[in-house]
């Protein structure tokens, strides 16, 4: 799920950036530091959408660096149990398949793939129904449901399932070629 929220961060800035465009430098550094990172609580910071306030700077003893408390608005992404996501398949093997939804890695094991889909080894490993009408292979887009999440300091892992109504392939790269 995506959330729009306000977060706060203390930014350290080197004295060489002090000047007319100090604020721009600060924002640029904030984006570089924060976007794409993951916090255990909020999930992934997708994008910074605005700066609420930049507090008073505090000079650090000894180094000359200045710390600014910055409040910023951002879009974060955190998967939840029960959530339905669309993801791109990255690897298919005998154990199941791996898929990615943005920065989140999801594993769908063969226990959670419908029973009528069988693993097919070969040049392009895939899971296919007996009649061949549905095929999951690398680069396929699938709709899946999250049934377990683990949020680390820097990564989020999920267990997904496609063994439920309305889940499974939504686009098949093999079909067009």
């Amino acid at each position: 799920m995506f959330f729009h929220m306000v977060l706060e961060r203390n930014m350290q800035l080197h004295p060489r950036h002090f000047g007319r465009d100090l604020r721009d430098k600060l924002v640029a550094k904030l984006m570089k530091d924060v976007e794409g990172t993951c916090s255990g609580h909020h999930g992934f910071v997708v994008a910074i959408t605005g700066i609420d306030s930049v507090g008073k700077g505090l000079i650090r003893d000894g180094t000359g660096f200045v710390t600014f408390p910055v409040k910023y608005q951002c879009v974060v992404f955190r998967p939840f149990k029960g959530e339905v996501l669309e993801a791109v398949v990255t690897m298919v093997n005998k154990m199941g398949f791996f898929a990615e939804a943005g920065p989140v890695q999801i594993f769908v094991s063969n226990h959670l793939i419908p029973d009528d889909m069988e693993f097919q080894p070969g040049d392009i490993p895939n899971y296919t129904t007996a009649d061949g009408s549905v095929k999951i292979q690398k680069e396929s887009e699938v709709r899946l449901k999250i049934i377990g999440t683990r949020v680390d300091a820097t990564e989020i892992f999920c267990i997904g399932t496609i063994k439920d109504d309305f889940l499974g392939v939504i686009s098949d790269p093999g079909a067009t070629s």
């Binding site: 154990m95 094991s109 226990h111 377990g148 999440t149 680390d152 267990i159 399932t161």
Partner: peptide
């Protein structure tokens, strides 16, 4: 619990 991915069961999703 037939297998585990990042500390979760790959079948039921429980830690």
């Amino acid at each position: 619990h037939p297998g585990f991915f990042a500390g979760m069961c790959m079948k039921c999703g429980q830690p």
